[in-house]
Design a protein around this nucleic acid. Structure first.
Lengths: 272, 272
DNA sequence: ACGTCGATTTCGAGG
DNA sequence: CCTCGAAGTCGACGT
């Protein structure tokens, strides 16, 4: 049986299913009226309401309301789930140590419990990451500027690992910091930090810093300017050949359409 | 009816329920064998497997596998869901513009569909945030150091807003950057950024920078030292009176136990 | 374990 | 809208 579901179960029946499901490595959903208490890195309290709780066999627990992408409460993988019934409430408790954290979901009423048998061997493939941007630059270093030669990636410095370390046409050390999307002040600071560190490593040499991203905010641009840092506008995916390695800030549009016709009936919901 | 569930429905029946549920502002879960394609800020592809899909009335869609806290694929609130059946597959498509993004979940087989009526008026209360740390300091500025006087919070600078701006006993400008937990190099950079900005605002004056956090990493401590920045060890919650305003790095333990005895039966699952 | 940083980060606040 | 920074961030990879 791939799915087991109880509709409006007694707490005792729900507890039985939950025990079996937890023991059998199943994914579980519980829907009902509950309160949630959390204590650990922070503390939180959530009054009564109807929510969807998801318990994963890896120890994850999620409490979802009807809004937002993030669970209102949760526990990360590696936790231990326990179920108990007392004083007319069904409690799911999730705990872990290091750090010491506990989440209690107390159900006053359970509308539905389901236990799913999950099989999923597929891995996600994703493109458009910073890693893709790095590969793009290693494949064609001139995208940074003519004469740029990459020497190392993730090169360690006292301030942390540098995305791409290399040399320019005049053999000066160059630090390249990559960002897959438009950047703000923090990216400029990060680059500055690496340049400072390498300045100490290469006394007497002028260490250049170049930020590579689709675009920068005004404030970030000002910081870069102030610090004598360079900027190269580049997308992680090379939709169109943009190889001008200069100090121009422009935003990269995200294109790529492929049309597909609709079919038969269709239901729609518009987000809030 | 608070919950409507179909077990192993035909695609047509599932589509009917989904349309009704989407139209009625319900939270929906679908479990079955599916593939997922995403294109937008990045692009991803996920081969066939059994997954739990959650569609929220605010336009959120989540694709969860049996592992991890984060969905393997998703779409944020504000998207539009559409359902269709074609060539033996049921497709849930979620789209938005600004940015242009699309997520397609194609079901080959549906084990279960449920539509939940969610009512949740309760708000989450959370303690232990950076805001709590700030309040703690405003209540007792001497926690920073004797003679410290807060002047403004979120004070704007050319480098961004400063958490707490004030003056020390000698009336020198002080920038305070708050972090609710142990910090790394980025926090030191952030503070440095603000100090630099205020240095320009107060020519001729020495602007001090102080990082307030439970603790710092070695590298962050080195960066602070290098830059002449101060550090005060402080937790967002004042579990024990720690008012020493000095350069000691120590990690803050998270306490607070309240014991509760177990009861009746109990099922357990250990994370991986 | 801890450190460091990326992320389709998400999220909220403010301009 | 955009900018900016927090987050119980999570997660991966390294030491």
């Amino acid at each position: 049986m791939s799915v087991t579901t109880l509709h409006r179960p007694t707490h005792r029946d729900a507890l039985g299913l939950l025990e079996t499901a937890f023991g059998g490595g199943r994914l579980v959903t519980v829907f009902g009226r509950c309160t949630v208490e959390y204590d650990g890195r922070a503390s939180s309290s959530l009054g009564p309401g109807d929510r969807l709780i998801i318990c994963k066999p890896d120890g994850t627990i999620l409490v979802h309301t009807d809004e937002k992408r993030k669970p209102v409460n949760w526990q990360p993988p590696g936790c231990t789930h326990r179920v108990s019934v007392r004083e007319g409430r069904l409690r799911i408790r999730s705990e872990r140590s290091a750090p010491e954290e506990r989440l209690d979901v107390d159900f006053e009423r359970i509308e539905q419990v389901s236990a799913y048998e999950v099989t999923d061997r597929s891995d996600l493939t994703l493109t458009g990451s910073e890693e893709d941007l790095r590969q793009r630059i290693l494949d064609d270093p001139a995208l940074i500027e003519p004469g740029f030669v990459p020497v190392a990636t993730e090169r360690e410095t006292t301030a942390g690992p540098v995305d791409v370390f290399g040399a320019d046409a005049d053999d000066r050390p160059v630090v390249v910091e990559l960002k897959r999307r438009r950047v703000g002040p923090s990216a400029a600071s990060q680059l500055q930090r690496y340049v400072d560190a390498l300045d100490e490593e290469f006394p007497g040499e002028y260490v250049r810093g170049i930020l590579v991203a689709p675009s920068v905010t005004d404030r970030a641009a000002a910081l870069l300017e102030e610090r004598g840092l360079g900027f190269v506008a580049l997308d992680p995916v090379g939709e169109d050949g943009d190889g001008s390695g200069s100090d121009s800030n422009r935003s990269g549009g995200s294109g790529g359409d492929d049309s597909e016709s609709d079919d038969s009936e269709s239901g729609t919901v518009d987000g809030a």
